[in-house]
């Protein structure tokens, strides 16, 4: 992808945003062949494709996209721990989508309004992510305010992933963002959706010693290594292969 003129790109930020999109894209792609209904399979694959497109632009700003995606070690990835969490059941995937797409939508809207090096991509991606957020919100409503079983599963999923949400608002070097404002808008939105879904906002900590989240520093959770092994296996086994 081509930028219009020489712009200095903060590599740390390009990796943080690009890795979030790449890793979540891969996780969503794992639903192919397993989604509960065909329409959802297609929807999740489409969301994954949007994210992959964003990842390609962002990683290309930081270097060679293939090298960055396929040849980096786990500790060099800068994605949030939230996006690397396993798919779990459909409710877990939706809770992850709700937390992340709300964050990504608010963050990209702010970047799009600025004039930094990420503004062009953010202006484009924010319109795509609006659909991801809508998709996640509608499913949260439907599962939360659904049957006893769907409500209970959605509650468990929202609780389980809550501790990964504080990390999203750690300032990223090179991004000119009002992080505290972003966090309060995110909390307001998430609280509103959970309320309407008859779910309670989880009580556990989102930051601090007993919460998770150091993905931006390259510290990842156990399942991420296995995900990377699968994602990178082909490229590492057959360097330079193409079809």
């Amino acid at each position: 992808m081509t930028a219009t003129g020489p712009v200095t790109v903060p590599v740390t930020a390009a990796l943080a945003l690009g890795d979030d999109a790449l890793v979540l894209s891969h996780r969503l792609g794992e639903w192919a062949g397993h989604a509960p209904v065909l329409e959802e399979e297609v929807a999740l694959a489409n969301i994954a494709l949007d994210l992959l497109g964003q990842a390609r632009v962002l990683l290309s700003l930081a270097g060679d996209e293939d090298e960055l995606a396929f040849l980096r070690e786990e500790r060099s990835f800068r994605n949030l721990q939230l996006v690397e969490q396993p798919n779990g059941d459909f409710a877990h995937t939706i809770a992850r989508q709700l937390y992340f797409s709300t964050y990504q939508h608010l963050l990209y809207a702010e970047l799009a309004a600025g004039d930094g090096p990420f503004a062009p991509l953010a202006a484009k991606a924010v319109k795509e992510v609006a659909y991801h957020r809508d998709h996640a919100e509608q499913w949260t409503l439907r599962l939360g305010d659904g049957t006893e079983t769907s409500h209970e599963r959605m509650r468990r999923a929202c609780d389980a992933l809550w501790r990964f949400t504080g990390e999203m608002f750690q300032p990223v070097e090179g991004l000119d963002v009002d992080w505290a404002g972003l966090e309060s808008r995110w909390l307001e939105s998430a609280t509103g959706v959970l309320d309407r879904s008859t779910l309670t906002v989880p009580e556990g900590p989102r930051t601090g010693a007993w919460s998770a989240g150091a993905g931006r520093q390259g510290v990842h959770t156990e399942s991420f290594g296995r995900m990377l092994a699968e994602m990178q296996h082909l490229h590492r086994s057959h360097p330079g292969a193409s079809w």
Binding site: K127, Y131, L141
Partner: peptide, 20 residues
């Protein structure tokens, strides 16, 4: 305006979401 045009997924069990 920007952003998606809201669409309806269908009523939820209690209809609480309907208003939104």
């Amino acid at each position: 305006a920007s952003g998606p045009i809201p669409l309806t997924l269908g009523p939820t069990r209690t209809g609480a979401a309907g208003a939104a």
